[in-house]
Design a protein around this nucleic acid. Structure first.
Lengths: 115, 115
DNA sequence: ATCTAAGGTATCTTTTTGTATACTAGGTTT
DNA sequence: AAACCTAGTATACAAAAAGATACCTTAGAT
């Protein structure tokens, strides 16, 4: 029965134009400040960065640590629970890489993946 | 390096409001006609069903078989290549189910997953 | 007095997604 | 002759997501 299909739940937390790269950064760098994330993702606006981080925080994937200082300091990191997502992300990453190859075989190497 | 992160490629083919359920149907039912898919997904419009199927077809996940009859008959099925996605979909499904549980523990069982 | 730093909000506009409704084709049924 | 069937397409519209830009806070340095 379709109600048992929870693929969408996984998608829900991953979808959003920037979430995968944000997670990639946090997984590989460990703890990062807001401004460090901004530097790593030059094209993201503060608004987007904030909203994506808040969604990830809601889902207990990302932890937000606020230091009461001036100027402000806020650090983001993957939660312990979030770490459990690593194998899934890796599986998706691997599938993604092989799919790009597959598309190249089908349509030629000059083409980019598109929908 | 972020360019090596291909999670988004996997997302690309799964994103679209109806793709996961369409795939679920085709994986579990095998071959289905356009109208059967419509019956299984009562709230989808023809336009959406068509566009989602075409995207999946482009990615070589779904095969479209046209019978030159009147009234028309078109059958959809998962390609052999598409079958290779099954483990990933299952992994996502399982993660999704456990994540719903986790959210329930955090926020209480009455709440739905949200972003 | 003014400027800077850091981590945001508030507003507004644009782009992307999704929905609603009507229409098509040619043969079959009423 | 009119209506129905299937698998769509065309057009118009609404809603959601993303982007651009301006503004806020507060302590210390200039």
């Amino acid at each position: 029965m379709p109600e048992d299909c929870k693929v969408e739940t996984a998608l829900e937390i991953l979808v959003g134009k920037w979430k995968p790269i944000i997670l990639y950064q946090l997984f590989s760098q460990g703890t990062m400040r807001f401004s460090e994330l901004q530097k790593a993702l030059p094209d993201i606006t503060k608004k987007m960065l904030t909203s994506q981080l808040r969604e990830l925080e809601y889902h207990d994937i990302v932890h937000r640590e606020i230091y009461l200082q001036i100027p402000p300091k806020v650090e983001y990191s993957i939660t312990e629970y979030g770490m459990r997502m690593a194998p899934l992300l890796q599986a998706m990453n691997e599938w993604g890489m092989s799919h790009i190859e597959h598309l190249n075989e089908l349509y030629g190497a000059e083409m980019q993946a598109k929908r």
